[in-house]
Write a protein that binds this DNA or RNA. Structure first.
Length: 499
DNA sequence: GAGTTTGAAACT
DNA sequence: CAGTTTCAAACTC
């Protein structure tokens, strides 16, 4: 049986399309030796660059699955066989990214559907996670620890190029249990009681996005892929996958005693009202990571929803955001009109008190002038502004000062290490600790006199400050060497007397 | 580090 | 669309 995949070649490296296709495996028709892994279970794609016509590749595949390239901006992949009663209507969701809105077509899997899109607005990659659900009983997998799941679950990767995963992970050296997030609130929807686990996806490292292990659901296990290399797997509890299919607020609402039918924002309010402390934005409103189209990663946020655990909410928030402002995930600093400077704020700032000369101002922060579209009051961030010029000069001067200080520090530390290198043989020759009693008051006074003498000498010869410092330090080094040398000798004498 | 200021975004 | 609220970052002390 063969399956056809009409695959669009990425128009450029700037916008690669990534397939992430895996399934839990109890299939006997696996042929790992083949250069192209044979199993394709997925059917969700996004794409934005209709420049190059689709390319068709043939893969031997026991399941009759096809991925069809559709004209325009959609690609739909649907099974040829295995019809199912559970087929749901095609779901097209317009979601945004930096490059503009995109359409996603979701055709549920014929079997137990576990299709997840991981939308990363602003990311160069489109992530799709496809998991063919196989129950524990049908696979014969024990409902045990995740380690056993890894041994039995064999992920299949279909890709002619690099394959990324929605949870980019670094190649794990050993199988690693990810520490579950502490259960700090009623909003925690994932429990740790799950035993059955599902393989989500193989992965190669994604340099642009660092892994956020803390955002993986409790019980997630990371493991290296067979064959090693920069490939790994993330195994998450089955319930996690299932829950992602459900209404995002059911668990929350039920746990807080509120109706489960609440819609997006309303549900948020319900949850917020249930909290005794300050309101939370769930990182889906005011969070910079979210605004940049990124997942929160190593943030200090509380009850963060801007992560893989809350994809549904996140997608909903993205949609809401785009409904309100279709440009929301586009860069704020773009090209100006013809004749204007190359870069300008897409919306313009709205500053009132900062004079647009502080980092509160988005234009100033981006190091660009305010433009005609800015609605700022008392703007001083324009080309001829004397305040701006003064500020620039001050900034330049400060930068020069910092550079000078850095250079001086570097020079000084190299001189110190140079001195230490010179004194090292003396210290090592004696070995062991030297008797501190040699640093007597007299020795200290003598040392200070030597240093002062050097300072005077430098002053008399009108040496620059740096040179004077060097001379003094060098003298200090000599003094130290003499002290250490004397101490070493005395120690040796003492030892010979004792013998 | 705590408190204040600021302006973007959300909300009404 | 304007006013208000909320928030997190920038800033000050």
């Amino acid at each position: 049986m063969s399956s056809q995949i009409a695959k669009k070649t990425p128009a450029s490296s700037a916008a690669p399309i990534k397939f992430i296709i895996t399934k839990t495996v109890n299939s006997k028709s696996l042929s790992p030796q083949t250069s192209v892994p044979p199993v394709i279970a997925g059917r969700v794609l996004t794409q934005t660059s209709p420049v190059i016509p689709p390319r068709t590749i043939n893969l031997s595949e026991p399941h009759n699955t096809s991925i069809q390239s559709l004209p325009g901006k959609k690609i739909a992949i649907s099974p040829l066989k295995t019809p199912s009663k559970n087929i749901k209507p095609v779901q097209s969701v317009a979601v945004g990214g930096v490059g503009g809105s995109q359409f996603k077509t979701i055709i549920p899997l014929a079997t137990q559907p576990n299709v997840q899109q991981i939308q990363v607005p602003g990311s160069r990659f489109h992530y799709v996670r496809l998991v063919t659900a196989t129950t524990a009983s049908s696979t014969g997998q024990p409902s045990g620890p995740s380690t056993s799941s890894i041994q039995t679950a064999k992920p299949m990767v279909v890709s002619t190029g690099a394959v990324r995963m929605s949870v980019p992970i670094v190649p794990p050296q050993t199988m690693k249990q990810v520490a579950p997030k502490p259960l700090t609130s009623a909003a925690q929807v994932v429990t740790t009681t799950q035993t059955q686990q599902r393989l989500i996806m193989p992965a190669t490292p994604l340099p642009q996005i660092q892994p956020n292990f803390t955002n993986l659901p409790p019980g997630t296990v990371l493991a290296p892929a067979p064959g090693g290399g920069n490939v790994g797997y993330a195994v998450v509890p089955a319930q996690y996958v299932t829950q992602l299919q459900q209404s995002p607020f059911v668990t929350l609402a039920s746990s807080s005693g509120f109706p489960a039918s609440a819609e997006g924002a309303e549900a948020n309010k319900v949850i917020l009202a249930d909290r005794p402390t300050k309101l939370f934005a769930f990182c889906l409103k005011y969070c910079d990571c979210f605004a940049n189209g990124e997942f929160c990663n190593n943030c200090n946020c509380n009850n963060c929803f801007n992560n893989l655990e809350h994809e549904t909410e996140r997608l909903k928030a993205i949609k809401t955001c785009l409904d309100r402002n279709p440009e929301a995930f586009k860069p704020k600093i773009g090209k100006g009109k013809e004749g204007e400077s190359d870069r300008r704020h897409s919306k313009g700032c709205n500053c009132k008190r900062s004079g647009c000369l502080k980092n509160y101002c988005e234009c100033y922060e981006a190091k660009i002038m305010c433009s005609s579209i800015c609605k700022c009051i008392g703007c001083k961030n324009f080309e001829e502004s004397p305040e701006r010029k003064t500020l620039m000069h001050l900034a330049d001067a400060a930068e020069v000062r910092v550079q000078q200080q850095t250079a001086a520090k570097t020079k000084l530390s190299s001189q110190i290490s140079d001195l230490l290198m010179r004194t090292a043989p003396v210290i090592s020759s004696g070995g062991g600790r030297l008797p501190y009693t040699f640093v007597t008051k007299e020795v200290l006074e003598a040392t200070c006199e030597c240093l002062l003498e050097q300072a005077k000498k430098a002053e008399q010869t009108h040496q620059p400050q740096a040179e004077a410092e060097r001379m003094i330090l060098e003298e200090f080094g000599h003094c130290l060497m003499r002290i250490i040398s004397s101490a070493g000798k005395a120690k040796a004498d003492c030892a010979s007397i004792n013998c």
